[in-house]
Amino acid sequence: MRLQSAIARNRFVDSLFAILGLLAMLVGLVTLLALFLGLALDGWSRLTWRFFTSYPSRFPVEAGILSAWVGTTTVMFVTALTAVPIGVGAAVYLEEYAPKNWLTDLIEINIANLAGVPSIVYGLLALGLLVYQLHLGQSILTAGLTLALLILPIVVTSAREAIRSVPNSIREAAHALGATKWQTVKDHVLPYATGGILTGLIIALSRAIGESAPLITIGALSFIAFLPHPPWQPEFPYLSFQWLLDPFTVMPIQMFNWVSRPQEEFHTNAAAAGLVLLGMTLAMNGLAIFIRARFRKQIKW
């Protein structure tokens, strides 16, 4: 009898514990839902075509995010173009080439540590080094490089995982046919790892797109009423890189600017900008999941 009541009590405590677990899980999910709904309710009415094609303005109803989304796009372009070769190169080195020695250990510890450095510290690095030592100014180039350094640890780590998941038999087969190490990597390992690398890159970029702290630190402006120079020109060589050195603003900074104003109409603008920003990051995360699933289906070891 005593045993039965003990069992019953234990069962009861066990189910209480399961309910507690469920509740804890719901904290995060409910907040996420509240955040979406709140943002959508506040900002939906402002999401018109004009919002995307107008410059910021003193009048909340006329203000838009044209310079912000153009800035975000160009900065992300520079970030991706910088982070991919360095990140994938580092991952290939660490997975395929690195001997087991102190230098490799040092690199690995560094990457792990950099992943934990607060993003605003990257902003200070960029301010001291890129803006004032290298004189790149408060430009799209500086911002892109800053965010590239910021996401480098994520890119390296995910690329390493993708490379590691390529079975060794592929490498051995290539070596057996006389391929050099680089030929093996370039023609066999990297093509198989592309899905994983791409997934990691998109996730990393979706983090970078929402970063504002390091860009505020390098001195990004929030009131930009013009677009960067176009990347082309009428004369030879037809391509222009003038836009790299143009001042910029990005979506999260535009939103921050609107949030920190006292007028409520600007808060509506902030909510609308937040919705667009959230839509961008979610779309990127969705794309990453899609790519991962696709590549997984294609490759059967």
Binding site: M25, G28, L29, T31, L32, A34, L35, G38, L39, D42, I203, S206, R207, I209, G210, E211, S212, A213, P252, I253, M255, F256, V259, H267, A270, A271, G274, L277, L278, T281, L282, N285, I289
Partner: peptide, 23 residues
């Protein structure tokens, strides 16, 4: 649940700031 929770890390921090101040 796991991917849904991880969505929390994808939300830009400035959006969280908006949420803290105005909700």
């Amino acid at each position: 649940v796991k991917p849904l929770l991880e969505l929390l890390t994808a939300v830009p921090t400035v959006v969280f700031g908006y949420f803290a101040l105005l909700f």
